[in-house]
Amino acid sequence: MEEKIKKVESMKIIKTELDKIKEYVTKDNSIIKELLHPKIHGEEIKQSLALAIVKDKTLLHKHNISEEIYFILEGKGL
């Protein structure tokens, strides 16, 4: 039990504020905001989380190192 408590105490809390995150535009004109990313928040983070606003449709693409998970708030996927 003591080992689990130590692990929790060493966890890093990361807070992001959506309105303060710089957005960028991709090749298909989607707007991206990186909410959580290893290059921004530290290499110990092994995943990223982004907000994507897709204007029309996104280009089919593949990531060689990671996978993407989509949570669609409006419209529909493939």
Rank of each mutant, 00 (worst) to 15 (best):
A52W: 03
K55T: 03
I45E: 11
L78W: 02
I31D: 02
P38D: 09
I5P: 01
L60R: 11
H63Y: 10
L36W: 04
K62W: 14
K46D: 01
E67L: 15
H37P: 09
K62R: 15
E67Q: 11
K7H: 01
F71Q: 10
S66W: 02
I21Y: 05
K15W: 00
I13P: 04
F71V: 12
L73A: 13
L73S: 04
K57A: 08
T58M: 03
V54Y: 05
I5W: 14
T26E: 04
V25D: 00
E3W: 10
K33T: 08
H37E: 10
K57N: 11
K55Q: 06
V54G: 02
N64W: 11
I21V: 11
I72Q: 08
E74K: 15
L35G: 00
I69M: 09
K62P: 10
L78K: 07
I32S: 00
G77C: 01
E67S: 12
E44D: 12
V25Q: 03
V25A: 04
K57L: 12
T26M: 03
G42Y: 15
T58E: 05
E3H: 05
T26R: 08
I65V: 15
G42N: 10
F71R: 06
V54C: 06
D56K: 15
K33H: 13
E44I: 05
K7D: 03
K76W: 03
S30W: 03
E43D: 06
K33M: 14
E17K: 09
I13K: 13
I72F: 05
K76A: 12
M1R: 08
H37T: 12
H37C: 06
T16D: 03
M11C: 04
E23H: 07
G42T: 04
I45S: 06
E43R: 15
L35F: 07
K15F: 05
T26S: 10
I13G: 07
K55P: 00
E34K: 15
S30L: 08
E44H: 10
L59D: 07
I40A: 13
I69V: 04
F71S: 10
D56G: 06
E44V: 00
D56A: 15
L35I: 12
M11Y: 08
S66M: 09
M1Q: 05
K6G: 11
K55V: 09
Q47Y: 04
L51R: 02
K20W: 01
G42L: 07
G77L: 15
E68A: 12
K76I: 11
K76C: 04
E68I: 04
E17R: 10
D19A: 10
K12D: 00
K27T: 13
Y24G: 01
I69C: 07
G77W: 05
I32F: 14
K76R: 15
E74V: 00
I5H: 01
T26H: 07
K4E: 07
I32N: 02
K39W: 01
E17D: 14
F71L: 13
G77I: 11
K46M: 00
K15S: 04
S48G: 13
V25F: 01
I14P: 09
I72C: 13
K22R: 10
E67D: 02
D19P: 07
